[in-house]
C-alpha cells in the first residue's frame, strides 16, 4: 500500500507536469525569453503549485505524523553555502540550454521522445559524478 500510494502520487505529479506544459522544453524557453517570444504560462504553474502546497502542507502538519511513517522528514539545514547558490546557478545554465528540469524530463520519458532519454541519461551521469566527486573530497 505504501509503495502503491507513491505510484499514484507520482502519477498525479506526472499528469500535472504534462497538463501544465512543464513537459515541453519550448514552453520553458519561451517562459524565460521575456525579451522575445514570451509565454508567461509557467508562472501559472508555479502559482498553482505554490498555493496548493503552501496551504496543504500546513493542514498536513497539524497531524502528529504521516500515514505511512513515524515522522515527517524535513530538511534541517539553514546555511546559505556556496554549493547551494553555485549549484543552483549551474542547474539554471543547464535548464536554459536543454529546456528540461528533472521534474519535467522524467514524465517526458513517457512520451517516448528521444531527447528526453538523452537528457535524463546525461543528467543521471552528472548527478552521480558530482556526488562521487564530493564524496572523494570528503
Amino acid at each position: 500500500m505504501r509503495v502503491f500510494s507513491a505510484l499514484l502520487i507520482g502519477l498525479i505529479f506526472g499528469a500535472g507536469i504534462a497538463v501544465s506544459g512543464m513537459i515541453n522544453p519550448a514552453k520553458i524557453f519561451n517562459f524565460f525569453d521575456i525579451a522575445g517570444t514570451w509565454d508567461p504560462s509557467l508562472a501559472f504553474v508555479m502559482g498553482g503549485a505554490l498555493v496548493v502546497t503552501f496551504i496543504g502542507y500546513r493542514l498536513v502538519w497539524r497531524r502528529q505524523r504521516p500515514v505511512f511513517d513515524s515522522q515527517f522528514h524535513l530538511p534541517t539545514r539553514k546555511d546559505l553555502d556556496p554549493a547551494l547558490i553555485g549549484g543552483a546557478a549551474l542547474f539554471g545554465i543547464g535548464w536554459g540550454i536543454a529546456g528540461f528540469c528533472p521534474g519535467g524530463a522524467i514524465p517526458a520519458l513517457g512520451l517516448g521522445e528521444a531527447q528526453a532519454f538523452i537528457f535524463v541519461a546525461a543528467m543521471l551521469a552528472g548527478l552521480w559524478g558530482m556526488r562521487l566527486l564530493r564524496s572523494l573530497k570528503g
Binding site: 505504501r2 500510494s5 507513491a6 502520487i9 507520482g10 498525479i12 505529479f13 499528469a15 500535472g16 507536469i17 504534462a18 497538463v19 501544465s20 506544459g21 512543464m22 504560462s41 509557467l42 501559472f44 504553474v45 508555479m46 502559482g47 498553482g48 503549485a49 505554490l50 498555493v51 496548493v52 502546497t53 496543504g56 502542507y57 493542514l59 498536513v60 502538519w61 497531524r63 505524523r65 504521516p66 500515514v67 505511512f68 511513517d69 515522522q71 515527517f72 522528514h73 524535513l74 530538511p75 521534474g103
Partner: peptide, 24 residues
C-alpha cells in the same frame, strides 16, 4: 491548463507529505 497542472503538482507534493512525510 498551466494553473490546473500546477495545482496537480501541488496536490502530489501535499499527498507525499501527508502519506510518506517526504519532500517531493
Amino acid at each position: 491548463l498551466s494553473l490546473a497542472g500546477g495545482a496537480m503538482i501541488g496536490l502530489s507534493a501535499v499527498l507525499l507529505m501527508a502519506l510518506h512525510g517526504r519532500i517531493a
